[in-house]
Design a protein around this nucleic acid. Structure first.
Lengths: 231, 231
DNA sequence: TTTGGAGTATGATAAATATCATATCGCTTA
DNA sequence: TAAGCGATATGATATTTATCATACTCCAAA
């Protein structure tokens, strides 16, 4: 983890979340003064479950994974955070310590705002609070939707689900560099590494995707989509 | 659904949530004037997914289930709401329509407070907003914890998990009346009805539980607990 | 009282998936 | 350059679980 030399001015941050629209000049400058801006490399871990929650994280660029690590064999990935997400927002108001671990999947850049600063904003600015509730609500919806969609699918559908979401929601393109290993895909959807590999090979043989090293090209998005709903 | 004849006065409600501690006399009386108090019988459905969200629900007594009903064969139970829970809190700030359906499992009694009233409280009272965030956070934690614990277990562990949670968290007793059918237990944890029955029979044969009609007695809580962590 | 249906129960079988074994590829490090 | 390691790949086998079939029980409606 490395602090950025020339941090962005929050007042004119191009990535500024709608969350901060409700803040006045004074409040925003408080955020600006209480934040750090940081970059990390792929694989670096920024939070270990059990760590004290000190900062509120706003992801500017790159991808992070939230995961459990009770047992390395059974590591499970809870969700992937994307640019403009508030990472780990879910439990900063109910816990003092992080419940999940976080690692950088790609190069990432994010802001760290002190939790107390955020809590003060909530207390003093109802509109901000409501935006935060909304934001949290959306994050939860997303995790629950994935969780319950996946539960009704078997392995082909599950692997298809990951590939389809990466293509449509994360990268917005039929061709992209797979940021996850086969093992990590398996940890996201509850399928063994070998079977993730097998299923991806089948998709390749069936002409649904093309695999070139780390690059994935979705050749038949519609077939992939159908797999995510019918299994 | 039947309105209660003599609704409780919010100002002296014995079940009043900590959420409302931060409200002044005036705000609380606003809640009181904008609420209905309602009872329902087991099996009655109070929300169908897709319905407009009009009220904020506070469960006074009984149990409710939140579930998806895309396909009756694949109905999944998301969570069980308990007394003092804010039911369906998760998406009232991000959606205009309910995402999940809700039914009464037992006889239930709850308050319905207009959503606009709650939103106003959030806007005007930062402490209330923060309590709400905390409440929501806890609800989410619970759902996620269950979801990810269950995923690492296979069927014996999953069934044990439900029985153990009912015993320790919902009823706080080793003997209780099972409020769910075997089918519903299966829909909670992703196991077929037949296998739920089979596993419960095995637990009975192994002396872990005793089954007397709808009554379940947990004879060996520790063995049940071990099953929920080691599978 | 009978009857039908849903819930519970148990065995047999089929399907899905994990696990084990082995091989290859690409990359880093000695 | 070689050695070693982790990721990918594929086949064979074992395990887990769903599904199908068949009873039995209990309760509510005819």
């Amino acid at each position: 983890m490395k602090s950025v030399d020339t941090p962005t001015n929050c007042m004119q941050c191009p990535l500024r979340s709608s969350l901060f629209e409700s803040l006045g000049r004074k409040e925003l400058s408080c955020v600006h003064l209480n934040k750090r801006e940081v970059v990390m490399e792929p694989g670096e871990q920024l939070v270990r479950s059990g760590d004290k929650i000190t900062h509120f994280l706003y992801l500017q660029s790159g991808l992070l994974k939230l995961f459990t690590e009770s047992d390395s064999r059974r590591e499970q990935i809870i969700s992937i955070s994307r640019p403009r997400d508030f990472v780990g927002l879910l439990n900063i108001f109910s816990d003092t310590h992080h419940r999940y671990s976080m690692s950088a999947i790609t190069d990432v850049r994010f802001c760290m705002i002190e939790v107390d600063c955020i809590k003060q904003l909530v207390d003093n600015n109802g509109f901000f609070a409501r935006e935060l509730l909304k934001n949290m609500s959306i994050a939860v919806d997303h995790i629950l939707k994935d969780s319950y969609n996946l539960r009704s699918l078997q392995m082909h559908g599950r692997v298809a689900y990951v590939l389809y979401e990466l293509s449509t929601e994360i990268f917005g393109s039929t061709g992209f560099e797979l940021p996850l290993s086969r093992k990590e895909v398996g940890q996201m959807v509850g399928v063994s590494t070998e079977n993730v590999i097998r299923v991806m090979s089948e998709f390749r043989q069936d002409g649904i995707i093309r695999i070139e090293g780390k690059k994935i090209y979705v050749l038949e998005p519609e077939r992939l989509r159908l797999l995510t709903i019918r299994g």
